[in-house]
Design a protein around this nucleic acid. Structure first.
Lengths: 113, 113
DNA sequence: CGAGAATACATTGACATTCGATGTATGCCG
DNA sequence: CGGCATACATCGAATGTCAATGTATTCTCG
């Protein structure tokens, strides 16, 4: 029984990059945004979130800085880099291509020659 | 650089089940159909295909029999079972739900409250 | 003011899955 | 007969998600 979250594979990076186009954010907020926007369909666990964030940082797609939130709490804030913006464009393209390809199979009513 | 095939995760089962609604087929043919239909966008490697087929068999979603092809060659033919048909319906539903959820994030132009 | 919930970061180990490479064997075509 | 396509299968490496756990701080409510 594959719940939607089992399909998250490989798409998380894309989602994170996209949320960062709305401005800098810290990890917890990113996860919340995604969950809210999708009406709880997508649940981003912390064990997926933080490794992903570190991964994006290593690859230079986001830049991380320690900052103090309004409440004086220590937070790690992530910003999209130019490289990350380019990556987002590329990944978003292959995502669309992939969805279209799967759609072709799923919508086909007859078997090919 | 994530080529589309890196997104295959978790979707392969769905694609295989769908191709089997067109009638019984052997592994090699299934892979061909998928590649043809998607215009080579999706490439199903043998190291992914056969484990997936065995997996589906174990779970009772497909039934496998040894048969002789027209050319007298020994082939393993897979058929969709009623359980597999139900599974296809379920997975196809969560796929649509998942795609819609990702779309919501990707199409959102403003950050949520 | 004290307890608990929410925020916020992070790591760990188990598990599943894909990917590329490799191996075997047969039929078809020139 | 040689080479290519068909057809099955397995292996090891790499990756990534998931659930659980840990720490610490702030906010809320009685």
């Amino acid at each position: 029984m594959p719940r939607p979250r089992d399909l998250l594979q490989g798409t998380l990076d894309l989602l994170i990059l996209k949320t960062l186009t709305w401005g800098p954010a810290h990890g917890y907020a990113i996860a919340r945004w995604i969950e809210q926007l999708t009406g709880e369909v997508l649940h981003v666990g912390e064990g997926s979130l933080y490794p992903a964030l570190h991964r994006l940082d290593e690859r230079g797609w986001v830049a991380a800085t320690w900052e103090l939130s309004d409440s004086g709490r220590r937070t790690r804030v992530y910003r999209l880099t130019p490289k990350g913006r380019a990556q987002l464009k590329a990944e978003s393209g292959s995502w669309k291509q992939f969805v279209a390809a799967v759609g072709k199979v799923l919508d086909a009513s007859e078997q090919p020659v």
